[in-house]
Structure formats: C-alpha cells, structure tokens
C-alpha cells in the first residue's frame, strides 16, 4: 500500500511537469491556433541555461531559474516573431512544418554548443525529504516542490486570465481574432505574450524535470514535449484545466504502469490510453465540442 502511494505521488509529480509543459501547448494552440512543436526543445534550452548558470558558473539555484526563464521567454518570443508571425495567414501545415524545423534547429544548436554527452544536472531543490508513516513513505523534496509549483502556476495563470485586461484580450483573440481587433486589441502583441508565458513556464518545467531526472542532453525536451502535447490533447487542447487534468492523469498512468506492468511498455500504455480516450471523446476530456476548421 505504501509503495503504491509512493508511485502514485511521484506519478502526480511527473504529471505536474507534463501539465506545466502542456499549458504552453494548449495556450499557444488556443490563442494562436497553431501547434508549437518546438515547445519541448525550449524546455531543453531552459535546462541548459540553468545548468550553465548553476553548475558551470556557480550561481544559486533561484538565480539560475530566473536566468532560464529570461532566456526561454526571449527565445520563445523571438521564434514567434521571426518564424511564426510571417506565416499568420499561411496554411496550418506550413506553420506545423516550420515548428518541426525550429525544433531540429534548437536541438542541433544545443548539440553544437554542449555536445551529445549527457550533463549531470544539479537539482534546484535542496530541501530534506519528507518522511511519513514511520519511514515507510519517503517523498523527495523535488516531488513536493514540483507538485506545489504546478498548483501555484495553475492558480496564478487562471487569475491572470480572468482578472487582467491582457488575460481577457487572450480569451477574445482565442475566440475571434477579427472581433478582438475591432475591440482595439493588438492581436500580434497578444500572441507574443502567450508565447512569452508558455516559454517562461517551459523554463520552470525544465528546472523541475531535470531536477527529477538529472541527465541533460540536447534531446531531453523531445519525449516530455511529446508526452505533454499528448496530455494537452488528452485533457482537451485549448483548455487550461484540461492541461492540468491531462498532465496528471498521464503522469500517474505512466508511473503506475512502469511500477506494476512493465517499464518498457509504459509509454505504449500511455499512448494506448490516449487513443482510446480520443476514440470516445475526440475533443479530449474537457475539450469544447465544436467543429473546428483546420
């Protein structure tokens, strides 16, 4: 029972990382109507930025995270400005291919700078583990910090969207770009803000992910990226609570199947569940039931 609880909690923690990454996919999809396949690689860049700041330069972890957030935000906004904005009126396929191209570009730039060997990431969380039930349940501090970060981010983001002008502008743009511009909303600026938020969250996700799984390579972002994208689709792409729900469910399924079924099959099981959910509910768990023109 204790081991189940322990697997479950670390599943929730892994799922929290997926949820934070999934927010980036889901917000960009909801507002810019595009799939940013380079999002996973922004996590990796964030990881390397923090690694360089903390491990190479010896800065404190919080300063490292701050640098990672700044690097990723600038990177995300730049990618949007240079690669995606010129394609605003282009077909969604052209945008998708561009995003895949950016993904490879980021991986190869990282490969050029940091090489293909894995780097040992120092955890940004230096707190004692939580020991419960007379030592039978040992929860790592990284796990706890990850889950708490996810909760804080969710609350902050929901508040931002519901209570600020920019948040309301994001909702307006996501529903009707033309009508939003008739309200005086600068659609390009709103989309840039969305990329900034998504990329800043990717840096935080990178810090948490690499703290839990400390081996950092130029490909570190791709698998979590794909899984978080899956989580976003699973929960209903475009929906923020959907990203949270999808991420957590995915993380728990992955961890439990690793523990009780097979660690090699866990990814296959995760994607099989996704396929079943999408067969039953094509728009995901919390997705809007609308016919979308793609």
């Amino acid at each position: 029972m204790m081991s189940f609880l322990s697997y479950f909690i670390s599943g929730v923690s892994l799922g929290s990382v997926y949820a934070i990454i999934a927010l980036g996919y889901t917000m960009v999809y909801g507002i810019a109507r595009m799939l940013n396949f380079a999002h996973g690689d922004i996590i990796m860049i964030g990881g390397f930025a923090i690694f360089t700041a903390v491990t190479t330069m010896g800065l404190p972890p919080l300063a490292g995270i701050l640098i990672g957030v700044v690097v990723c935000t600038v990177l995300g906004v730049t990618i949007e400005r240079v690669a995606y904005r010129p394609l605003r009126e282009a077909s969604s396929l052209a945008v998708l291919i561009t995003a895949i191209g950016i993904s490879y570009l980021l991986q190869n730039v990282a490969l050029l700078i940091f090489g293909s060997n894995s780097h040992q990431f120092t955890s940004v969380v230096n707190l004692p583990n939580l020991v419960l039930a007379d030592g039978r349940l040992n929860i790592s501090s990284t796990t706890i910090v990850t889950i708490l970060s996810c909760i804080v981010i969710m609350i902050a983001l929901t508040t931002f969207i519901n209570r600020t002008r920019t948040g309301q502008a994001m909702l307006a743009v996501s529903e009707d770009r033309g009508a939003a511009s008739l309200m005086g909303i600068d659609v390009n600026k709103t989309i840039a803000v969305t990329f900034a938020i998504g990329s800043a969250l990717a840096a935080i996700a990178g810090a948490l992910l690499c703290s839990a799984y400390p081996s950092l390579t130029p490909y570190t972002g791709s698998m979590p990226g794909i899984k978080a994208f899956t989580a976003a689709v699973f929960g209903g792409i475009g929906s923020i609570p959907g990203a949270l729900l999808g991420g957590i469910i995915l993380g728990v399924i992955e961890n439990l199947s690793k523990a009780y079924i097979s660690s090699q099959l866990s990814d296959a099981i995760v994607f099989a569940v996704l396929i079943v959910v999408l067969l039953v509910r094509p728009t995901g768990i919390l997705g809007r039931q609308i016919n979308e023109k793609v």
């Binding site: 002008r165 309301q168 502008a169 909702l171 307006a172 529903e175 009707d176 033309g178 009508a179 939003a180 008739l182 309200m183 005086g184 909303i185």
Partner: peptide
C-alpha cells in the same frame, strides 16, 4: 461576432479595452 463563451459583462468590458 460577440464573444460567445464570455459573459455579457466580459464582452462589454472588452469593448472598453
């Protein structure tokens, strides 16, 4: 082209954006 998923009040406030 009202924002169908937003409330009447949210729509009006967006008018004053």
């Amino acid at each position: 082209r009202v924002f169908a998923e937003l409330t009447v009040l949210q729509n009006l406030k967006l008018g004053a954006y």
